[in-house]
């Protein structure tokens, strides 16, 4: 039964990985912008959750009503000031430039967080933090359960938004053919701005969950690393694949912990990263290589 317990934790961790990666996948898939700062944004959002809890005793899942719009506005600001001007470049140049700029943002956010909130680790301890749901011998933390539900909800919500609403379809159309979407009458500037804002806003979900674990200025790049592994596993442009990639990484890591020991978690993750890059570079959940 111990084995099943490990897998359960793997699924919970994997869901959190997916929550961090989904914003990165959305922004990269739709706009061709490589936003390395996505993990740092989750870190900033995590501090938001911590502060709301410390000062106002608001539960991290409830304070999403504040952190979501706040992160959206941060995204809009980032896009207008830094990324919008990159649209004039070809896609390769845009990818490289955005990577460099967002790497700078990682450093800025980490330093800013250290100055504002010190380098100490912080955690939100809610009443249900230690509570578990017992299923037979299996013990599932309520916070973990919430993580899984949130990851599934966000990813399927996003899928529904992109494929079944008018505004979502415009975003999807712009991602397929920027100029042609414009010819149809899509306001491409407004649409990409909103898409970037949404991609960044999603990091608020990750932040809420992260705040229940550990928040410190240094976690940003760690979360981005996980997100990048997920993007490679899922394949660039695959949004639904992110959830499965997250679960795969989480479970493989858990198996690593079970079989080899906790110190090798990172190694196991990078190992499947390399294996996938070697044998299926287009990703596991993309049917054919992208054009």
């Amino acid at each position: 039964m111990e084995f099943a317990q490990y897998i359960t934790y793997g699924v919970i961790n994997g869901s959190l990985y997916a929550l961090v990666a989904i914003g990165l996948a959305l922004i990269m898939g739709i706009m061709g912008i490589f936003n390395i700062a996505q993990g740092s944004l989750a870190m900033i959002a995590g501090y938001g959750s911590v502060l709301f809890f410390q000062h106002l005793k608001i539960d991290p899942f409830v304070s999403l009503v504040f952190t979501l719009p706040a992160m959206f506005l941060i995204g809009v600001f980032m896009y207008l000031t830094m990324f919008m001007s990159m649209n004039k470049y070809d896609s390769g140049q845009k990818l490289r430039n955005s990577m460099l700029v967002s790497f700078g943002l990682v450093l800025i956010m980490e330093t800013l967080a250290t100055i504002l909130w010190t380098a100490n680790e912080r955690t939100v301890t809610v009443a249900y933090s230690g509570a578990v749901l017992a299923v037979g011998d299996l013990r599932i933390p309520y916070t973990g359960l919430a993580t899984i539900v949130l990851a599934i909800g966000v990813i399927f919500g996003l899928h529904f938004f992109l494929k079944h609403t008018t505004f979502g379809k415009s975003i999807w159309a712009v991602s397929q053919d920027h100029d042609c979407a414009m010819l149809m009458g899509v306001n491409v500037r407004r649409t990409t701005l909103a898409a970037f804002g949404i991609g960044v806003a999603i990091s608020a979900f990750a932040g809420a969950v992260v705040s229940l674990h550990t928040v410190s200025p240094a976690i940003g790049i760690d979360w981005t690393n996980k997100a990048l592994i997920l993007i490679v596993l899922a394949g660039v442009g695959s949004i639904n694949g992110i959830l499965f990639a997250g679960l795969l990484l989480g479970i493989v890591e858990a198996l690593g912990v079970y079989l080899v020991g906790v110190h090798y978690t990172g190694v196991v993750g990078l190992l499947i990263f390399i294996i996938v890059l070697m044998f299926r570079p287009q990703g596991l959940f993309v049917r054919k290589a992208g054009v």
Binding site: T166, K169, S170, W172, A173, Q176, D177, D179, C180, A181, L183, M184, G185, V186
Partner: peptide
């Protein structure tokens, strides 16, 4: 004024109906 672009430029990943719907976005 509507333009039928050179090389069709359809939204490849979308269905026929979705493509038509995109034409009526205004």
């Amino acid at each position: 004024i509507a333009m039928v672009p050179e090389g069709r430029r359809l939204f490849r990943e979308m269905t026929v109906l979705d493509n038509l719907e995109m034409g009526a976005i205004t």
